[in-house]
Amino acid sequence: MKRKLFDFLNFFILFTVLTAVWWFLYLLKIWPSWVLPSPWSVFAKIFSGLADFSLVSGMFISLGRVIFGFSLSFIFGTLIGFLISKNIWLKTYFKPLILGLQTLPSICWLPLALLWFGLNEKAIIFVVIMGTVLSVTISVESAIANISSNYIKAGLILGANKINLYKYIIFPAILPSYINAARQGWSFAWRSLMSGEMLFITVGLGQLLMFGRELNDMSQVMAVMIVIIIVGAFFDQAIFAGIEKRIRLKWGLTNR
């Protein structure tokens, strides 16, 4: 409890200091206000966006997409990761391909997605999946490859069959890396979605960001950026970081 309060205070101080610096820079008038708006006008934009529901609905639409795309990627990424780790043929030929594809920024899938699916929801989800699924696959595969062979041996000598080996040894053994894979996948999914949303008409945070640009409204641009960061970070911290910490504590990988 004390710890939480302390974390919150820290965060509050950091936030105040950053805002103060920003305000100070604004007051110096080095840049015109359409380059660097005052923090208050940006915060006002956030509040008005929340009040007239434009930001709220954008947020929920984006969240719906990212959760859908992320869940699919997570399921398929896990399955493909397990398959590759099991099959030597896939490992030799398919893994390099995946590693290569992973270097492609997810937005590069958009032209292809538009031609395949048209200007619609499917195209956006496709971009999110392509930006996420490979990272999950690679993390899962490498987590399985890095399990200490002694755990497997101990499981076998204690009489675990194939299914039980996966259920009681391999899966729990990769759990910390797996949560980490999810966390990384989440941030990939969120980034892919935002870049996808910016490029064509889709109600969503990315779209609101682009509107700001078209209206030359810097306060709107910064307001939406802040919301994007907060939403992404909130899920990362509130969900994934929490689970990860619980597991690391239980395993004795961290002390606090």
């Binding site: 002694n150 759990l175 395993w251």
Partner: peptide, 8 residues
């Protein structure tokens, strides 16, 4: 080594 399962 003991190789106990750390998750159990």
């Amino acid at each position: 080594d003991p190789t106990l399962f750390p998750w159990l």
